[in-house]
Design a protein around this nucleic acid. Structure first.
Lengths: 138, 138
DNA sequence: TCCAATCTATACCAATATAGTAGGAAATGT
DNA sequence: ACATTTCCTACTATATTGGTATAGATTGGA
C-alpha cells in the first residue's frame, strides 16, 4: 500500500512548478536539485506527466517544464495514473483474476479499489499546496 | 497500491473458516487446498492471524484453526495489520520521513493514509461474506 | 554555422521487497 | 510410541522498484 517514489517525486515537482511565479519554464535539473534526486530519474517522471498533459515541456536551450492546468484541476489520482498506470489493489479488482475458480473476491477488491480512487480523485494539487504552506508557517 | 498475497490468501482463509459449520477446527492443509496455495506458506499467514487473535489454533492431532471473533467484528484493516504490519502509504505518512528538509508532504500523505485506513476499518468480514454469496448466486 | 543547453528515448543494472520452499521442533490425541 | 498437526526459522527464487548510462533530437544564441 505504498506510493512509489515516482508518485512522490512527481507530486513534489508539481508543487515546485506551481510555485514558479515567472513565465520561464523550470529545468528538470532545477527541480531535481530541490529534492536531492537524480536529474535523469526525475526527467523520466516529468516525461510521464507531460504525456498525461499535466505539464508542458519546452525543448532545447532555456527549455524546461510548466504546468498545463490549474492546480485545482490536477488530482493525485491523475498524477498516480500518469506515472504508474491505473490503480488496482489486487489482480482481481480489475476483473482479470488469474485464479479463476478460487478467486471469489472481485466484488470486494473492486469496491475497495474504487473507494481509494475516489479519495485520490478528491485530493487536488491546490489542496496539497495549502498543506505545504501550513508546514512552512511555523 | 496492491494488496499482497498474504492479505488476499488470509482473507480467503477467513472466509472459509467462517463458513465452517461444524465445531471441529479446520486444518491449514484443507484451507490451502481450496485456494491452490502452498500449505507451508498459508500456515505462516494463519500464524500471523492467530497472533493477532483473529483466529485460534488447536495444535496436535485433529488440530486446526477456528475463528476467534464474529465476522462482523473482523475488519480488513485488522487482517492487513496482522499479516503486514501497519499501513503507511509513504515513508512520510508515519512521521519518519528520511528526507527531512525536502519532504514537505507529511500532512498530505498522512491524510490520505488515514482515509484509506478508515475504508478498511469499515469493511468487515461479514460484508465480504455477503459479496461471496452474491457471486455464488448466479 | 556551430555549440552548448535542454528535453527524449531506451537499454541496462542494482537494491529491495514479495512470494514461496524446506526442514525440523513442539504439542496432542489415540 | 506414533501419527498428525501447528509452530518456528532459515533459505531461495522471482518480481518490482529505484536508479544509471548512453545516445539522440531540438532549440537559442554566439
Amino acid at each position: 500500500m505504498k506510493f512509489s517514489t515516482k508518485v512522490r517525486y512527481g507530486l513534489k515537482a508539481l508543487v515546485d512548478l506551481s510555485m514558479n511565479e515567472s513565465e520561464t519554464p523550470v529545468m528538470a535539473s532545477h527541480l531535481a536539485e530541490k529534492q536531492a534526486v537524480s536529474v535523469k530519474y526525475l526527467e523520466r517522471i516529468l516525461n510521464s506527466l507531460k504525456k498525461a498533459e499535466i505539464i508542458k515541456s519546452v525543448r532545447g536551450c532555456h527549455g524546461g517544464y510548466v504546468l498545463n492546468k490549474k492546480p485545482e484541476d490536477i488530482s493525485i489520482y491523475e498524477i498516480y495514473v500518469a506515472v504508474e498506470g491505473d490503480i488496482s489493489v489486487s489482480p482481481c479488482s480489475m476483473g482479470d483474476c488469474p485464479r479463476h475458480i478460487a478467486c471469489y473476491a472481485s466484488n470486494v477488491w473492486g469496491e475497495i479499489n474504487s473507494k481509494i480512487v475516489d479519495i485520490l480523485k478528491d485530493y487536488d494539487l491546490a489542496t496539497v499546496i495549502e498543506r505545504v504552506d501550513d508546514e512552512l508557517s511555523f
